[in-house]
Design a protein around this nucleic acid. Structure first.
Length: 262
DNA sequence: ATGACTAAACCTTTTAGA
């Protein structure tokens, strides 16, 4: 079984690239972020033709997330229950798999950007991260088999940053953000990609400006976290830079996880 | 250089992303 996450930075613009990528990489599940469209504009038919069921949670102009699955997903939940939010950032669903106990809960999330430490948006990011952690803690009790993936907008440490000195305590790299990320991990989650040897300077996002991709000036901010129960099943995890080489690419690359399930 | 690209909307200028 393969799962992926990709911040597409406008599904309207990127739909042809998403369809191409899914044809070349027929994953079982993909979480998309930054749809930047309302649900009435969502390309259900094109994705259905490509073999995917869609659960979407759209928003005009900004944000918007979706889960595409080869088999129908159940128990869809939008955003963080109990946390009032006017932004469409989280979508969750269950993949019925084998018996009931083997069901996998998949959470696709677009974490707040935060703009700059000390800003109102950074405060919102901190509150959002606190609410997420409380919720994930209870989700793990309900669903031992859990995958939390998406655009986290946080680097784990300096290995995830092309210029750790220049970006020290800058947005995506602050200790406050990293503390929240480590707190999520402490609930019993694992950064899938770090379970394996990875190439150095392995990033998932590059600025559109200044030829950042060609110079590999990037950040690793897109992650796939798996629960303790799923960790033994993780076979591989990697970042696919191929679509970043397209014409008019998203600024993010997909991350792909392979589980030893069929 | 609170810059550089890209996308969307209140669209020749602003907001936001990261």
């Amino acid at each position: 079984m393969k799962l992926a996450t990709w911040n597409v930075n406008s599904l309207s613009v990127r739909l042809p690239q998403v369809l191409d990528w899914l044809q070349a990489n027929p994953v079982d599940v993909i979480a998309l972020q930054e749809l930047k469209m309302t649900d009435d504009k969502f390309p259900f038919a094109a994705l259905q033709a490509a073999g995917y069921h869609s659960q979407c949670f759209g928003q005009k102009t900004y944000n918007g997330v979706a889960l595409l699955t080869r088999t129908p997903a159940t128990d869809t939940v939008k955003n963080i229950p109990g946390f009032s939010d006017d932004m469409a950032r989280v979508i969750s669903a269950t993949l019925p798999f084998g018996d009931a106990k083997s069901a996998i809960r998949v959470i696709g999330a677009y974490f707040p950007n935060g703009q700059a430490p000390g800003s109102d948006k950074f405060d919102y990011k901190m509150h959002w991260l606190g609410a997420l952690r409380q919720w994930i803690k209870t989700e793990l009790q309900t669903y031992p088999n859990l995958v939390l993936m998406g655009d986290f907008n946080i680097t784990f440490d300096d290995l995830d940053v092309w210029d750790p000195v220049g970006m020290h305590e800058q947005i995506h790299c602050t200790e406050d953000e990293r503390f929240h990320l480590r707190s999520l991990i402490a609930l019993g989650l694992h950064d899938s990609i770090r379970l394996f040897e990875q190439p150095a300077k392995n990033y998932s996002w590059w600025d559109y400006r200044d030829m950042a991709f060609r110079r590999n000036r990037g950040l690793r901010i897109d992650h796939i976290l798996v629960s303790d129960a799923l960790k033994p099943l993780v076979k591989a995890c990697s970042i696919d830079k191929t679509p970043r080489k397209n014409e008019r690419p998203s600024d993010h690359a997909p991350v792909v996880l392979e589980l030893a399930l069929s």
